[in-house]
Design a protein around this nucleic acid. Structure first.
Length: 267
DNA sequence: AGAATTACCTGAGCGC
DNA sequence: TGCGCTCAGGTAATTC
């Protein structure tokens, strides 16, 4: 399940491998993922050069001269750049062939991913227009979180997972950041003090940047970046004990999502 | 406006 | 072995 660090590592890898390459043809084998795959994709992409690969939240943005290819990996999606591609297998939904014979292949068993096409400013696309500040930029700070949380009774974990509040914080890192910040995930967002908002922001930034740094040096065969190089303190340890106080962790659900925290350390 | 809920999708894991 | 069930979860859409 790609979260922001995995998407950023994918961006860096693809930027390095694809920038300047020309698209020869496009083969789409699915009509839709979570949303329909644009029917005009082959027409608009053929003959175009990929100039750069950007990112907004968990969306990848491919500058293709005539417009932008927008890709979200969803839960199970990944993009591989293959120099000697085998025939497409099950769940290989999209192949973008380059003139050097390599292929950019989108694979997504659960079809939660998204492929879109837009001309003009990609940030104005409906999927991206309402997204909040990037968590690793100065625009996301404690003052901001304090301000936007004042009228919110929703659990703080759900607030920081809301892309309109801050981009790209998914379930895993929301759990981890709140553990490090020593804040209970079910606290009403409006109950947080300024100092607590400072802490939440600080640790969101810390877990994300740590994961990016560790992931950039953690590789497996064929230059594939493995997911989740970080060892998690709470995520996936619902039946275990706190790494800090050794007390039993508590597992609950918020917004239908698995939530793990230490009731002693997190207040 | 904000909160709560649901739909989308398929592989893995489990009990029987 | 295989059936049926539950779970995983990002985001848009829908309802209240």
């Amino acid at each position: 399940m790609p979260e922001l660090p995995e998407v950023e590592l994918t961006r860096r890898r693809l930027e390095r491998e694809l920038a300047g390459k020309e698209i020869e043809r496009v083969e789409s084998r699915a009509a839709k993922l979570r949303l329909p795959i644009p029917v005009e994709l082959a027409t608009v992409l053929t003959g175009r050069t990929i100039r750069s690969v950007g990112r907004r939240g968990k969306y990848l943005l491919f500058d293709c001269e005539a417009g932008w290819l927008v890709v979200h990996l969803g839960m199970t999606g990944f993009l591989r750049h293959l120099h000697d591609p085998s025939p497409p297998g099950k769940h290989d939904h999209l192949d973008i062939w380059l003139t050097d014979g390599s292929v950019l292949r989108f694979h997504d068993p659960r079809k939660f991913g998204t492929v879109a096409w837009t001309q003009g400013d990609p940030l104005a696309h409906p999927l991206l227009a309402g997204i909040g500040p990037e968590p690793l930029t100065p625009a996301f700070d404690g003052a901001y979180l304090f301000r936007v949380s004042r009228s919110r009774t929703v659990a703080v974990k759900l607030l920081i997972m809301n892309a309109a509040m801050v981009a790209g914080v998914g379930n895993i890192y929301a759990n981890e950041a709140l553990f490090r910040a020593a804040i209970r995930p079910d606290r009403p967002a409006c109950s947080l003090t300024q100092e607590e908002c400072d802490r939440v922001v600080h640790f969101i930034r810390e877990v994300l940047s740590e994961s990016i740094e560790q992931g950039s040096t953690y590789r497996v065969a064929e230059a594939t970046v493995a997911y989740h190089p970080l060892e998690f303190a709470v995520y996936g340890r619902g039946k275990g004990n706190c790494t800090r106080c050794n007390g039993p962790l508590e597992e609950t659900r918020l917004g239908g999502r698995s939530t793990v925290f230490c009731p002693r350390c997190q207040r």
